[in-house]
């Protein structure tokens, strides 16, 4: 038996036993979810999932399109642009930390930081940049952080989401932790994110049409009618939304930009791979 044959046989045995592919990879999860939603919503084209529940209901879509004709968040994006261009006291700016080409910022996040062994998010990096330059950091859920994030995201519109989980056991553990968080039931109502946004997507929870998870992260930060009724200006980050979802199932929310939500963003954004960034946007 030649060496080549031995190597091939060993490789085949490994594949047969599954020893090379025990880890449920990101690609497997994405494919499984796409297959699931294709079966659940056979008439909805893949790219439409970026539009959330507005891809599922013609009535809701009319309302959404009319909101987009005169977006209530244009001023916020302009404020974000001013923040991007503003120099820190030391002469640096956000571009010093995030890169001079603003069109290439949004799509780098979330990503795995192998050195610090943690998931990095855009908003987390904005705040880290301020701290590193002796500036007072923004709040993490609304206001300036959402304005700046919205401007940065708007400059990446049209690009395709491409979150990469590297071949690194810590990165995969973070991804798996995010995935577990997404699928775990929690709170007094004993509901998981997946209960609403996978299994019940397309159904109504009171007056709200539940959106599919695929496409969720493409349009954040968002301006929400619900948030506009409360304190603030209706604008908020993805982690603000996570906290809101947790509160709705009557679980204690976790800290924005903490490990739990950052890991979940890693998984959550991965599920939108291949969809187009279109941010900021209006949501109910």
């Amino acid at each position: 038996m030649t060496m080549k044959k031995i190597v091939l046989m060993a490789l085949a045995a490994c594949l047969a036993l599954g020893t090379t592919g025990v880890y449920a990879s990101q690609a497997d999860d994405i494919n499984a979810l796409r297959h699931y939603f294709k079966k659940k919503f056979p008439t909805v084209p893949f790219k439409e999932f970026a539009n959330g529940s507005y891809a599922l209901s013609a009535d809701k879509r009319i309302n959404w399109e009319s909101m987009r004709d005169f977006p209530p968040f244009e001023d916020h994006v302009a404020k974000g642009e001013a923040l991007w261009n503003k120099k820190f006291k030391n002469g640096n700016s956000f571009a010093t930390c995030l890169g001079n080409d603003v069109t290439k910022v949004r799509n780098r996040f979330p990503h795995w930081n192998a050195k610090d062994k943690k998931v990095e998010t855009l908003e987390g990096n904005i705040v880290a940049c301020q701290k590193a330059n002796g500036e007072k950091p923004f709040g993490l859920k609304k206001g300036n952080i959402a304005y700046l994030s919205a401007y940065i995201a708007s400059q990446a519109n049209g690009q395709k989401v491409n979150v990469v989980v590297p071949d690194d056991k810590d990165a995969q553990a973070a991804y798996e932790a995010g995935k577990q968080f997404f699928y775990a039931k929690r709170g007094q109502l004993n509901l998981s994110c997946a209960d609403c946004h996978v299994y019940s997507a397309g159904m109504y929870a009171r007056g709200n049409l539940l959106s599919p998870v695929m496409g969720h992260t493409t349009h954040f930060p968002v301006w929400r009618g619900k948030w506009a009724k409360k304190k603030g200006d209706g604008f908020g980050t993805l982690h603000r939304r996570y906290g809101g979802c947790n509160k709705q199932v009557r679980a204690k929310p976790f800290k924005a930009q903490g490990k739990e939500y950052s890991n979940m963003e890693f998984f959550h954004a991965s599920m939108s791979n291949g969809l187009t960034i279109d941010a900021p946007d209006y949501r109910e």
């Binding site: 499984a32 979810l33 699928y183 039931k185 929690r186 996978v198």
Partner: peptide
């Protein structure tokens, strides 16, 4: 009671994952 249930729930969901 909520503390006990919350702990039990988290333990039950430790290995939560997709079921589709």
């Amino acid at each position: 009671f909520e503390g006990e249930m919350g702990y039990q729930q988290a333990m039950d969901q430790k290995n939560a994952g997709p079921r589709h």
